[in-house]
């Protein structure tokens, strides 16, 4: 039995010790906003926050995350940086198919929370692990910059 703190709620789960957080979220807890894209930490679709840091949930075993604050796309709008990022995403019309976007938004929200005024180089460093097959990168960059302007 593991107790996980997900989006402020406690979940008592009977899960295998090596089970990555991604599958716990999607298939056990039922939070499907976090996406599966590669399973090898190469695409970023599965990004969640653990104590505010962006982490690829597909390669991190959930069992080791007791007492850590896990935040997913479903609740990121409740944080100031998450809300700003979501707003900017809509204003700039970033999204195409949308599948990669929960991961993009989680990475961007973490960036904004730790660095309210990121440079292009900072954006590259924070966002290059997130693949978008639809190719929305230019707008992602623009939206992050727009979010820094938001009150």
């Amino acid at each position: 039995m593991v107790t996980l703190q997900i989006n402020g709620n406690e979940h008592h789960l009977d899960i295998p010790e090596d089970m990555p957080l991604l599958w716990v979220l999607r298939d056990v807890v039922g939070l499907t906003g976090t996406k599966f894209g590669c399973g090898i930490a190469q695409c970023g679709a599965c990004t969640v926050h653990i104590d505010g840091r962006p982490i690829r949930s597909c390669v991190i075993p959930a069992a080791g995350l007791a007492d850590r604050a896990i935040t997913t796309i479903e609740a990121i709008g409740e944080t100031p940086s998450g809300r700003k990022i979501q707003q900017a995403w809509l204003e700039v019309e970033v999204i195409q198919c949308g599948y990669c976007q929960p991961g993009q938004i989680m990475s961007a929200a973490a960036l904004l929370a730790s660095n309210p005024n990121p440079s292009d180089a900072d954006i590259d460093a924070a966002m290059s692990g997130n693949i978008c097959r639809c190719g929305t990168y230019q707008r992602i960059r623009a939206a992050i910059k727009q979010a820094t302007q938001a009150a």
Partner: peptide, 29 residues
């Protein structure tokens, strides 16, 4: 005129459902 997309609000908060997100009671994977 540039119209705001109608499908995007649910795509920023994890609500949008893709095929992979389907949940049916009793479903196996």
């Amino acid at each position: 005129t540039p119209a705001k997309r109608l499908d995007t609000p649910d795509k920023v908060n994890g609500k949008a459902l893709f095929g992979i997100d389907v949940k049916i009671p009793g479903m196996k994977i």
